[in-house]
Every structure is written in structure tokens, then in C-alpha cells.
Computed example of a mutant assay.
Amino acid sequence: MIRVKLKSKLALTGAATMAALFLGLNANAARMDMVDVSNNNGYMSTAEYVSMRNEFGVKAVTVKISEGGTYKDPYAASNIANVQAAGMYINGYHFARYATKTQAIAEADFAGKAAKAAGLPIGAVLATDVEAEEQNNQSKATNDRNNATFMKEIQKFGYRSDIYTSGSWANNKMTIKAKTGWIAAYPYVVSGKNWYSTNHAWQWSSTAKFRISYGGFDVSQLNSNYYTAGQKSTVKPTNKGAVKANNQKANKNTSKPAALAKWVKESKTYTLKTAVKLRAGASTSSNTIIVLPAGTTVKTDQAIIQGGYRWVRQPRFNGFGYLATGPASNTLEYVKSGVTHTYYTVKYGDSWWTIAQRNGLNMTTLASQNGKTIYTTIYPGQRLVVR
């Protein structure tokens, strides 16, 4: 959702990945029933939503409302208004940062008020997007308690509740019961299998393309009417032929699946020869927990090669941290210094989103690799690392 990304966004479960390797292509397998959008997608016009509806069969749109306890998505109000003008169902989501019950209540109150102000209609779903490092560091029981608290509180604003998370977190980091939940898991090849059919929705791609809209979008198949209930939609797709053809195209993925990476035991002590980012996951798009300075000693328990890097896992008092020890092609026990970077000079009118899109990056990744967040102001003439 947030594209880390995150919008990562979320990793495919190991079992599901293995299943995808053996399942053939069925172009009619997954439908583009719902799209979720946020500030990452920029301003979205009514015409774009009409195109999604008429040419791709999109029924519902879920827009980002807020994040944590302070951030309100600046495009929430325009997205809600334009989706409604296009005649589609509208819902919202809040990117959760809570780690305690008190924080969950505070974030629900913040999200509910933000949704009201943005015009999200009563009866819409206001889901909690649970995929951040704050929840990764909690027990399943704690996450279950916090999620239940958030959802109970959000209902006081007249909204229906649900949980969005990844397939690898569902019933692992938190409980997702049947007939609830919006689950993200991206197969290499969409097959005849309807994943997560007992849940409300399955998000099967984060890179879907629409004819008159720029960039990639998260798309989901709806397995129930939960995200289309309680709101009136009188407008239907007008081009059934285009809907069928475009859905077939979206389902196709010609890229070959990579070999499945596996964690292996590795009890080693590393002394860092340069500063290294300790991350919440084994990915360059994962959030940075802390920057470890040169000279730091790191004790690890596991290692893996994936995403072009060799990663090691560091046990911590409240979970694990992950750091890259170098490119996957070498076995150096430290991160090389003196890496050559490619820079981009910020121009007038640029934003984190436009620069990230221009360079094929996730917006959060672009900001983090420059030691900043997407909320940091950038100025013309400023140099940013893009490679």
C-alpha cells in the first residue's frame, strides 16, 4: 500500500511462491475488481477512474486516508470525490504505526476524523494497513489486541473495519479469520487458483497498468461484497470487450521466476568497515531501524542471498535486524566502501514521487537511501542518490 512499497510493497509467502512455479497461466484467473491509491499515485482525475471502470472493470477504489498519528494523505479528498463522480464504490485505509493499545486508539481517532474531513461516506470500509516495522517487532497476541482495538474504535465513526496485510504475515504475525481480511501476495504467474478465496479480497499485483494513468497500481480481486456494500453504484462498465482483453493482459507475466531463496544458519561476528543501515527486513525497501557506524560489531544467526545482495540477520531484544554484507556475487564480510552512485539534481516542481517514478524507484526507498523520509522537503539544486 505505501510502496516500500513499501504501496514495498508486500512479499509473497514462500509456500505460495513455490505453488506459483508449478501453476500454468490462466488469463481469466484474477480480476481487477479493486484498485488502491495514495499520494504515491499523485492526482487522479475522474476521467482516469472512468477509464478504469469502463475499460478494466474496476468496481471499487480504496484510498489512503492517513498514516500513524500525524500524516493525512493530501490527495484523499480529491480521490474520494473523483471516485464517487466516476460512479464506483469508495473505501479508505490507514497505514498503521501503532505498537500499543493506546496508540491504536489514538490512530483510529485520527484516521476517523481525517476520513470524515476528506469526505469518506458513512458505511465505507476504513481498513487498517498492518505491515510496518512497529508490528513486526510485536508478538502475534499484541498485534491481535491492537488491531481489534483499532477496528472497534474506527466503527464509532460509522465506518466498517478490516485488516490489510501480507500473506506471510496473515496468521503468523496476526490472526486473519475467514470471511475477513484483505491479503496481499504477488505470484510470478497468475493461475487458475483463486488465492485467499475465504478472505474479502486478494491483492495480486502491485504493478498493474491503466491506459490513461501513469505508473503501476495495486489491484485486488474481491472474493465477497464487503468492499462494495452499503454504497450505491449505478454506473457499470460500458466496454465488456475491453474489460476482458485488458484483464487478460494484466494477468500475463512473462518474467521467469527466480530460484527460491532460503535462509541458512550462520553464527558469525562482523566488524563493519563502513556505516550500514540495519533494516526491518531483508530488502533495500525495508524501513531503516538504525544506521550502524563503522567499527560496530554485529553478531548474526542466519544469512540469505536475495534481491542482488547477501543479507544477514541480527537477533535483537525485540525481534531481528537485517543488513546487507555485500552483493550476492561476493562473500565479503563487510559492506564495501567507495560504492559509485548515480545522482539526480532536484529541479523546480520535482517531488519525491516524480523523481522516484522517473528513476524506477519506490518513493520511500529513494528517500531512505538519501537518509531522509518522504515528508522531508527537497529543494531545487539538491543532489539525490538514485542508484
Rank of each mutant, 00 (worst) to 15 (best):
G326H: 03
G326P: 01
G326W: 04
P327S: 07
P327L: 09
P327A: 08
P327F: 07
A328T: 07
A328I: 00
A328V: 05
A328Y: 08
S329Q: 04
S329A: 05
N330F: 07
T331Q: 10
T331S: 12
T331I: 07
T331H: 15
L332F: 07
Y334T: 12
V335P: 00
V335H: 00
V335K: 11
V335M: 14
K336F: 09
K336Q: 13
S337L: 11
G338Y: 12
G338T: 07
G338I: 03
G338A: 09
G338R: 12
V339G: 08
V339M: 04
V339T: 15
V339W: 13
V339F: 09
T340S: 08
T340E: 11
T340A: 15
H341S: 03
H341I: 13
H341G: 04
H341Q: 13
H341P: 01
H341F: 14
Y343V: 04
Y343E: 02
Y344A: 00
T345F: 08
T345E: 12
V346N: 07
V346Y: 02
V346Q: 04
V346H: 14
V346P: 00
K347V: 02
K347N: 12
K347A: 11
K347F: 00
K347Q: 15
K347T: 06
Y348I: 10
Y348W: 05
Y348F: 13
Y348N: 15
Y348A: 14
Y348K: 14
G349M: 10
G349I: 09
G349D: 05
S351T: 14
S351C: 08
S351L: 03
S351G: 10
S351I: 12
S351Y: 00
W352H: 05
W353H: 14
W353S: 12
W353I: 05
W353V: 09
I355D: 02
I355A: 02
I355K: 05
I355Y: 04
I355V: 13
I355E: 03
A356E: 00
Q357V: 09
Q357S: 14
Q357C: 01
Q357G: 08
Q357A: 15
R358H: 09
R358W: 01
R358N: 15
R358G: 04
R358C: 07
N359K: 08
G360W: 08
G360S: 14
G360F: 11
G360T: 13
L361Q: 05
L361A: 06
L361M: 15
L361K: 07
N362C: 13
N362D: 10
N362E: 08
M363D: 02
M363N: 05
T364M: 03
T364E: 06
T364W: 02
T364D: 15
T364H: 09
T365F: 10
T365K: 07
T365G: 09
T365H: 11
T365M: 11
L366A: 06
L366W: 02
L366F: 11
L366Y: 01
L366D: 00
L366G: 00
